[in-house]
Design a binder for these strands. Sequence first.
DNA 1: TACACTCATCAAACCGGTTCACTGACGAAC
DNA 2: GTTCGTCAGTGAACCGGTTTGATGAGTGTA
Lengths: 334, 334
Amino acid sequence: MSRTTIADVAREAGVTKATVSHALSGNRPISDDTKAKVLAAVEKLNWVPSQSARALATQRANAVAVVLARDPDVIANDSFFPAFIAGVESVLAETETALLLQVVPDRDAEERAYRTLTHGRADGALLLDLRTDDWRVPFLDDLGLPTVLVGAYDEPTEFSCVRTDDATPVREIIAQLRADGHERIAHISGPLDYVHSKARAEAYSAEIGSDELLREGDFTAASGRTRTAELLALPDRPTAILYSNDTMAIAGLSYARSQGLAVPRDLAISGFDDDHLSAHLSPALTSVSSDPAARGRAAARLLRADILGAQPRTEIVDCNIVHFRESTAPSASA
Amino acid sequence: MSRTTIADVAREAGVTKATVSHALSGNRPISDDTKAKVLAAVEKLNWVPSQSARALATQRANAVAVVLARDPDVIANDSFFPAFIAGVESVLAETETALLLQVVPDRDAEERAYRTLTHGRADGALLLDLRTDDWRVPFLDDLGLPTVLVGAYDEPTEFSCVRTDDATPVREIIAQLRADGHERIAHISGPLDYVHSKARAEAYSAEIGSDELLREGDFTAASGRTRTAELLALPDRPTAILYSNDTMAIAGLSYARSQGLAVPRDLAISGFDDDHLSAHLSPALTSVSSDPAARGRAAARLLRADILGAQPRTEIVDCNIVHFRESTAPSASA
DNA sequence: TACACTCATCAAACCGGTTCACTGACGAAC
DNA sequence: GTTCGTCAGTGAACCGGTTTGATGAGTGTA
């Protein structure tokens, strides 16, 4: 089954390839008459233009890419990612743009991946898991690949950016905990070179006025457990812990319990990112839902605009909502 | 910055385009001497071949696709999908194959997506969320697109297939529950036109010998709650419920509790698919881990073989492990 | 010295679209 | 009746690779 090409359609309609192309794209005026003939031929032959030929001719891949340098395990346990992708897709679908996903093991592979992308595979990229002073930003700038940064990026940059306000929910949670009588409030952050971890940790430090009870985790359950153990072993242990994601919070909760502490009576716990199961735990986990789908939609729209040549701009998606649940309920003794 | 092409490399190395191509692909013998010159030129100019040009010339997109017709919400709450994708990627990365992800709203868009894919966008596809008598199977067969089915598919098919044995873990759980003294064991399934839901439900029915306590859910928390409520309202209510995924199980657990039932004392509960948080719930949820990453790897390998023209074959990934946890612990009263 | 036979390289065609410079026909203006 | 402008459509070049048939140099043989 040799596939039908635009030449077949042209022959069928009794016109040239150029006419077929113009009739369909509308780039040149074509009489309604021949336009109808072309459409009929397209229909009859069930023709679909070859994406690779079109990409070569137009220098447009009609695809955007997400390159992830994460460990497969981390991807699997991340509640942000799938929802974000779903949001991205909902926008891309409108323009028949495909989403290219690439997971790479190391920086070398990542550079190669981006290089290949720029050469006919994708028209733009979304940058996730931003680090402070991320090497990819100047690299992609160099490559000239339209890019949207997801997360805050403080260096000056030519790229569009989707940010959220992570400081406000942190302050809200701390305010509530204080109102409930907590004075020793700790924070277990994600890796501090991730911009979002850092933003949360800095909001915590600023509000509390000290880093004494700040510990750096890495978003895994194991680190949630270890850091929690450290904090609870302190002579003057915290009565509340704010975690930078739900996985660590739940691991912490389960450790605290194993030490005979009741949550929230002896220890208040809050997560971040609101995993879909968190509301169903017992105690239900206080967390911050951040509508990853909305951020995905915003990022996709910005990227589309960038590719079409619009000025880069920063969009703040105001989506963080604190859900206070049982795990931070005021203890009866307070 | 007009990108460098193979012609630039050829000029730099003092040879023709053809020689560059052969030197790199090894399709024709090229002297070590010129090969070295070519490589030096490639290095110097930092040349990366254009994927679109290559795709057009070779009729190979070097990409495979996953088209999802799911609701974005469902994607966001699915623990299977990200891990599966991660597994797929780990295999594709070896051959610089990209993964194309497309989320479509309806069947029309899905057909169009597949048509476009076959025309220069992708070399093959992975089919998820298989239904009994799925229209996509004959459709893709017609299109001639190499495809791997993920999940059982009972109709005769020319496609490769990655299956799992879902019946055994269901039987194991039921056996354990019976050993713990349960006699009224219910099952809340996923939509029964999904092959994996159906396989689980059929294993349940066969083992129990009756459909009296079988209810059809749809994998959402809401359905888990509703169906649980129905079962618990029965005059002779079940003392154990087997859910077809963890989300429904947790929703059911939380409903049962709201009705004053203790888990596992008054009601034993088991999930399926082992969400990463399930082990951390309290009570920790008995579930079946199914290693989605392993299935992703198997599917990607089969697809790669298919694209290269291998005979289609079915691979059974034996990955289902039942994790018995507190939610099905034998009640003290038993 | 002529012949066959490799081996390395070249030149051109090809993949399937898009785009641009050009042509021919027709109507309006002078 | 000639000239100009517009409009619809044509033909060829082009995008950047890969592939194939032809070419020429170099070696071995008769």
